[in-house]
Design a protein around this nucleic acid. Sequence first.
DNA 1: ATGAAAGCGCTAACAG
DNA 2: CTGTTAGCGCTTTCAT
Lengths: 339, 339
Amino acid sequence: MKRINLKTIGEMVGVSASTVSRVLNGKSYVNEKTRKKVLEAISKTNYQPNELAQSLKMGSSTAICLMIPSIQNLIFAPICKGLEKVARERGYIVVLCNTDEDEEMEKIYIEKMQSRWTDGFVFACAKANEENVRSLQKTGVPIVLVNRYNEDDIDNIDIVGVDNFKATYDGMKYLISRGCKRIAFAMGEQRLFFYRERLRGYKAALIDSGMEYDESLVMYEKKSAEDFYHLTQELIKRDENIDAIFASSDPKAIVIMRALHDMGIRIPEDVSVLGFDDVELSAILEPPLSTVRQPFYQFGITAGNALINQIEYKNANGVLPPSKRYILDHEIVVRKSTK
Amino acid sequence: MKRINLKTIGEMVGVSASTVSRVLNGKSYVNEKTRKKVLEAISKTNYQPNELAQSLKMGSSTAICLMIPSIQNLIFAPICKGLEKVARERGYIVVLCNTDEDEEMEKIYIEKMQSRWTDGFVFACAKANEENVRSLQKTGVPIVLVNRYNEDDIDNIDIVGVDNFKATYDGMKYLISRGCKRIAFAMGEQRLFFYRERLRGYKAALIDSGMEYDESLVMYEKKSAEDFYHLTQELIKRDENIDAIFASSDPKAIVIMRALHDMGIRIPEDVSVLGFDDVELSAILEPPLSTVRQPFYQFGITAGNALINQIEYKNANGVLPPSKRYILDHEIVVRKSTK
DNA sequence: ATGAAAGCGCTAACAG
DNA sequence: CTGTTAGCGCTTTCAT
């Protein structure tokens, strides 16, 4: 089966390949008559330009890369969906790379994608380790960091997320407004900046409300969210005045609810549980989980637009635009797990 | 920043680009000394061949496309993860395309991917409509269908899934063995072959067990899984002898459990609920859902290998290999929602 | 064992 | 307004 290309089309109409190219990308005037004939031939043959050849010629592939720990992680699916939507609308495809929190794999993937002239990268870094991003950044390729980023990134690279400090602060204020007096906190991995911010928000809200910060009320994750099963039960046995637990992520909240349930403790009558994320399944838990919502789908949309804006700016001006930060609004979603 | 390519490397060592190419893909003998020098230059410069150029030359892109309704659908995340794993291991990248159950978008995506010389496609067809696949198939590109396929595909195209008839049959046998006498069935969209198969399995098991098939016990989805909230409540009010509901998918089971819960009906004491899928969240429901498990991650692995096998066979022989079917084992996962 | 040259399909500078 | 030409980076004959 002979492949059909610019030249084929040209021959059908009796013009050169360049003329056909010209009508296709319309940057140059072409005689209206030949233009019509060319268009006709194109639609008759169902011709589609070869994007590989275009990419090679233009030095850019109209492909972007989404580099995340795992698509099975519930927060990344909507991010991916949003990213893919704007990519599609703006003419890009998205290549999905799961790193499994392995920096080495991340590095290998980066190199692979570079050798395909990938136009830009959206990252949620493996192990929150940004070495790979740092060296990639030196090559001048557009990058945006989503959800996972550090303090030092904020002025150097595009980031998208919520204000984790403020969001947690607001969550605490809500709990306090509902009469909670002794609020525990389930803390996530310290290496993740956003968790440190959330802990900071927890403390600040306590102090601003004239309550004291009690170190013994914060539970620390050791290996996985499952840790909170025992941590919660031990905490509750040790301190029976606890009337609320604020989990720094929804998966933790789920484990905590199970731990409470298995002890015969009622939610929210005895203890309120507040989550953070609002992943897809939060609403279908029993009871439905109240949580601080992050707009993940919107993260994806925003990251995609930010990235493609960078790409187009770079194509036009030869250099990257100044970095921007995109802090989206969080929202307290009140369901049934809090009083 | 000057780009570094075969010629650059060649100049460093004093050989031509073709020689460098030869050492890289090792299909031809190169003098051991020059070979060493070339390898040295390559590692010193960290040179990576341009895959775009390779693709253009070779007529194949080492990229495969995953075309699914939505990555947010819990069954597709593990499929995607598995596919991506084998793709990576075998040297391919995966481009993710969400069709949103829109055949038109699917078609546009297919054309876009074809213009990039995508080496193969794995499909879960939008609206289970296989027209697009059919015409794509005519181009001779490798395709595998995962989860969603029709009877007519089975001998014409690679498919991966479970034996839906048998899986449902086994689920019913399990329910019956636990003493359930009056088992309702929550049926999914009829246009999906696998749902029709599941309904068939439901009937067959009933009859083989000497129980009668009562049309009034099967609930049909109208618009979404949410329909089953009312359907379940109406059914239970109408027929109080129902002691089990077999949902043809986990999302339906979740809605059904909520409907039951809200009526004050105990699970599994009053009514057992059995799901189908075993999506990630089934285990964390309250009570944890018993379900017929489909090995989705394994679907992804299998589909990836099947597709790449096709691609490699085609590269070697110029034609597609005969189609295969991959029917993986299901498993009854007993948790707490059944007696 | 290696270099020269052609060509994958496209775009853009240069002529005319 | 349009054709010719060169070149993106690579692989692969065809010579030598």
